[in-house]
Design a protein around this nucleic acid. Structure first.
Ligand code: FES
Ligand code: FES
Lengths: 145, 145
DNA sequence: GTTATAAAAGATGTTTAACTCTTTTATTAT
DNA sequence: ATAATAAAAGAGTTAAACATCTTTTATAAC
């Protein structure tokens, strides 16, 4: 596995796709999202359910219903998705798995690991979910391969 | 979970402890290592068995036997431990879980994620297993809490 | 209000990672 | 040789992550 859990990877890809669709004024169904971001449909349903519960995305049931993100949601950082799925360990935890990370009682990796962790955090916090859509729309980046 | 798997965290802590002991000229038993780095003893046994198979550490059976690291092993980078346990995905994989990471067909995170990944790689590759012992011996860093 | 649509909710199943136990083999000391 | 020690090897268990299936609820169109 990579840095994030598989569940989290699905979530990020899905949210990006929903964001893009929302900016085009469309709601999208689980089925469509699952196809476009290559994730198992029923599992993605559960993930989106959770993201919806914490208010990161919105949805409406029934015909022409589906998932979308309101303008407030588009302003939120990508970090919020990761936090909702994988928790804060990745932003604050010790690289060697010690119970807690501290300056006073650091592990051998601490000094360097802290930098990596900080860079990861700032990358996820500095960019909002909505900001990626320009890139996506003009086709310079992709959500599937 | 953090950036590395739990198994990998145990492995790194254990290898550091073994390295320290080796530089003091002692072999150490699974029991001792498990206590000192806070890992489940039988599980750690399996992990060390694997590291031993790939030649990262050495061991001898019987009385006064145990694990140690030869001078060659001490020169190897920490990255080798991570690679042996978690695989190369963490060094090369796409942050959003796309099948492969590429410059030509990048995901939205690619540009920034690449930097994080590179920093992580260089951190793990630049320092050898043996280099940590000075810090460990003088007590400025720790392997348990 | 009936029907169609689509997500929510809840229960269930599968796979992988984490962890344990038992038996065997190698080494050393007596 | 025998007994003691410690890892290797292999089989087995448990828990968590990943994934599916079924039923219910909300919404919209007719
Ligand atoms: S103590 Fe290990 S990363 Fe800070
Ligand atoms: S394509 Fe996603 S990190 Fe490179």
């Amino acid at each position: 596995m990579g840095i994030f859990s598989k569940t989290c990877e699905y979530a990020v890809r899905a949210v990006f796709y929903i964001a893009q669709s929302s900016q085009e004024g469309r709601k999208v169904s689980i089925k469509e999202i699952a196809e476009k971001v290559k994730s198992p449909e029923p599992f993605l349903g559960k993930i989106l359910q959770n993201l919806s519960k914490v208010g990161l995305i919105q949805s409406t049931k029934g015909p022409h219903g589906g998932f979308f993100i309101d303008p407030e949601g588009l302003k939120k950082p990508i970090a919020d998705i990761v936090l909702a799925i994988d928790g804060e360990q990745i932003f604050t935890g010790c690289g060697m798995g010690l119970d807690y990370c501290s300056e006073k009682n650091p592990c051998p990796l601490h000094h360097d690991f802290k930098k990596v962790r900080n860079q990861l955090s700032s990358m996820l916090k500095k960019t909002s979910i909505g900001q990626f859509n320009l890139q996506l729309i003009k086709g310079s980046v992709t959500l599937y391969k």
